[in-house]
Design a protein around this nucleic acid. Structure first.
Length: 507
RNA sequence: GCUCCGGUGGUGUAGCCCGGCCAAUCAUACGGGACUCUCGAUCCCGUGACCCGGGUUCAAAUCCCGGCCGGAGCACCA
């Protein structure tokens, strides 16, 4: 039945086909609109009252991974209306030392991705607030100062046994706490723990650390503090203070919720709704850790944090990606708890949809080979499509000395090829002119791109590798924009002067 | 090891809570064709999946049990 229909359709004339397609295209267009990518509805989300946050530690620049957090949270706030808060969880000046430049990079990239934070908070500047809540908990007997070493406590924890310090009175604990704040103890000597349940079936939950001493100057607050909260504590307090309604983050933080709930219970607060997503592994980048990237950037293996080979948002911006593409890419991943490993090809496909219709076309001849065309006496002016979608054109001089790429030269030497939009030649270093008409070579489809001698600019393309070659002068008008180098790839023209520097976007 | 969580085409995703309308959605990928003086663009057509085994039921991707596989956490990191 279906086959018959198709056969019937195929047998129609072009005109008739067109007519039928027209007839159904309205319906199709409507369907496409419905399928606009969107996040699944958020549980218990009230219009205008959704408060969400993105809480990075700026110990490196935002990466594709950060983009997911920004996009998913930001997008939900957009969907329902409410508040979007950026909070820098920068409470460890040593092991996760913040990078001073990264604070602004986050803000910039968030804006570029299309979200405007309603509030920006720096945890490191609000440490006194956390002290107050710590004090309350101590007074309530829900937190205690503990002098066990990490090793000692591990034994207690693993065996589900309460440590001796757990039983001290709130008054005593308070006294120790004050002395901690006054800097009377050394690093590692004492910590403040939250009382949970030493018999909890998950050892990870048992009496966790809320504050520890770190004697290291903080990039933002200097030496103002020696007692720093852990993420679990800081974030628990802050989420409540900010009135966060929904938390969506990676599943590595799943235990965090279980720990924090104890505090919420003690203060009688309501814990936000949470959702956790799985790990994203991108084929092209493998596992990426900020510290690992940092080492390679600092060692000079990469040009900088926006090196086009890097998975940072800055790098994608430099490559000329549209933020809409990145948004669609992550929205389509959804918020499932299973791990995903996905190829950047999907991102490329999203980006291509947006960029292809607007990118101007140019010839870029990499690894050029000089060709002399014999039998072509006069120069001609050649018109080529600049943007096939808009019908605009560009011009090139058709000369008897041209350059083609080595790949094409070697592959097609001795054959008749078509210099796109110009003429046909028998390809060799001394080529023979074979006419201007297209039909002669159309069958073989040996259509290649070319550039006239003396009317080009030096061009370098930076990407996975570096390509050297020449490009037509016309590109100058597209400085800063993404163009398509025909038969090569999309590239962003970063600089166009005497020489051209282009960044490889994607195929 | 302990505590959680998850397993739908090559890849991602919808459906699973509230079993039937799922011979399973959409995207991407791949294959074929059309169009085009580039193309990985566009337009047609096609390929391709419910981890395995039991159970409950008239009926299971959906519920239950077991297995296998994968992941996360088990820090004075975030």
């Amino acid at each position: 039945m279906v086959r018959e229909c198709i056969a019937e359709f195929e047998s129609l004339s072009e005109g008739e086909k067109e007519e039928l397609i027209q007839k159904f295209s309205v319906e199709k267009a409507e369907k496409k609109k419905e399928q606009v990518v969107a996040l699944p509805p958020l549980e218990k989300a009230e219009k205008g009252k959704v408060v969400m946050r993105f809480a990075p530690n700026p110990n490196g620049p935002p990466t594709l991974g950060s983009a997911r957090g920004i996009i998913v949270n930001g997008e939900y706030v957009k969907m329902y209306g409410g508040k979007f808060i950026i909070r820098f969880d920068d409470t460890d000046p040593r092991t996760k030392r913040p990078m001073i430049e990264a604070y602004d990079w986050y803000l910039e990239d968030i804006e570029w991705l299309g979200y405007k934070p309603d509030e920006v908070l720096y945890a490191s500047k609000r440490i006194p607030v956390y002290y107050e809540y710590a004090k309350k908990l101590i007074e309530m007997g829900k937190a205690y100062t503990c002098f066990c070493s990490q090793k000692e406590f591990k034994v207690y924890r693993d065996n589900g046994v309460e440590c001796p310090h757990r039983e001290i009175s709130p008054e005593e604990a308070l006294e120790v706490w004050e002395r901690m704040l006054d800097g009377e103890y050394e690093e590692g000597e004492v910590v403040l723990r939250i009382k949970t349940d030493m018999k909890h079936k998950d050892p990870a939950i048992r009496d966790w650390v809320a504050f520890r001493i770190i004697r290291e100057s903080h990039p933002l607050t200097g030496d103002s503090f020696v007692v720093y909260p852990t993420l679990d504590f800081e974030s628990a307090i802050e989420d409540h203070l900010c009135g966060i309604t929904h938390i969506i983050r990676g599943k590595d933080l799943i235990d965090s919720e279980r720990r924090q709930r104890y505090i919420y219970q003690y203060f009688n607060w309501e814990y936000p709704l949470t959702k956790h997503w799985g790990r994203v592994k991108i084929f092209e980048f493998g596992k990426l850790s900020t510290s690992w990237l940092r080492r390679d950037v600092e060692s000079g293996k990469y040009e900088g944090w926006d090196d086009p080979r890097l998975p940072t948002i800055r790098a994608f911006r430099r490559r000329g990606f549209e933020s809409e593409a990145i948004r669609n890419f992550f929205i389509s991943l959804g918020v499932g708890e299973n791990d995903v490993s996905i190829s950047l090809k999907n991102l490329y496909a999203e980006n291509r949809k947006i960029i292809d219709p607007k990118a101007n076309r140019y010839f870029f001849v990499w690894d050029p080979v000089r060709i002399e065309i014999e039998g072509l006496s006069e120069e001609v002016e050649v018109e080529l499509p600049l943007n096939p979608n808009k019908g605009t054109i560009r011009r090139l001089r058709g000369k008897n000395v041209v350059y083609v790429t080595r790949d094409d030269f070697e592959r097609l030497k001795g054959k008749v090829v078509r210099l796109k939009d110009f003429c046909n030649i028998l390809l060799d270093k001394k080529a023979e002119f074979r006419g201007f008409e297209l039909d002669d070579v159309k069958k073989g489809k040996n259509i290649i791109h070319w550039l006239p001698d003396g009317e080009t600019l030096q061009c370098t393309v930076l990407g996975e590798k570096t390509w050297e070659g020449m490009v037509e002068k016309n590109v100058v008008q597209d400085e800063g924009k993404v163009v398509q180098f025909e038969r090569f790839a999309f590239c962003r023209i970063e600089k166009a002067g005497e020489e051209v520097l282009a960044i490889y976007t994607h195929p």
